[in-house]
Amino acid sequence: METIVFALVNGVIYGLLLFMLSSGLTLIFSMMGVLNFAHASFYMLGAFFAYTIMGATSFWLALIFAPILVGLIGAAVERYGLRRVHVNGHVAELLFTFGLAYLIEEIVKIFYGKTAVDYRVPSILDFPAMQIYGVDLPAYRIFMLFVAIAMLVGLWLLLKRTRAGLIIQAALSHPHMVGHLGHNVPLIFMAVFGIGCALAGLAGVIAGNIFVTDPSMAVQMGPIVFVVVVVGGIGSLEGAFVASLLIGLLQNLAVGVNASFADIFGFLGLSAASEVGSITVSSLGPVLPFLLLVLILIFRPQGLMGEREL
């Protein structure tokens, strides 16, 4: 029972964090068709900028300015990099972001050194908020939950309640039509790319201090974000939301299961001594998202809630 409760709490928090990362990517991906390989690099930049700003001033200023800074860099990358490459097709754009990820990592290494920096949870939030079955649930995790929900609501209001949001929504599903209607599509692209990167940066600010802020954090987070976006379905923020929570819960729940394949498939004659039989479900947890990705793409290529195929 306690395992399940704990997995639920953690799964939701982790899932919301994933959503913060993947919502920006979904926007970018749906609108521009570009799978931004450097998206997790912007997440990393958010964490490093927050570390610098927090060192000079306070965490709260970092929470505001680090994402803005990351968003500006993202917008610049779109304006001076991606837009140029756009004429050469999607593969070129994708490869551009692929190279960009390399570049950002190396530049971060020059400025911040090659290993982890001492980016801390602010002391005001550094206390256990409650105990669940003897394990502390830190206040900072609750704070993360609130930031994620605030972001979710903010994004929803932006998309559903403002004119700009309506145009973005239209551009998500029918980018060409929006262009024909006379909207400045390049500007929308730039803005969306910037906002997407800023959201990733925000995720970096609030996650960098409970995980580790080092130059390899982008590579670590990168693939899983793709999984969320693709599983959720293109053009669908709701899908990304569901997929984030699903993957967060799946990973957390799997860890709690001690059964091995031999226990589950024992009736088929699988012995615990064999290699397949000795694999436990909990050791598979982190691999499950990729299995999900492959299965979804084969059987439901439009993703969980997407309207069109990739």
Partner: peptide, 16 residues
């Protein structure tokens, strides 16, 4: 045993 270099959040393991 957990997969090498794939786990992002160890909280569930700590809970165990």
């Amino acid at each position: 045993l957990h997969p090498l270099g794939k786990v992002k959040d160890f909280t569930p393991y700590i809970q165990k």
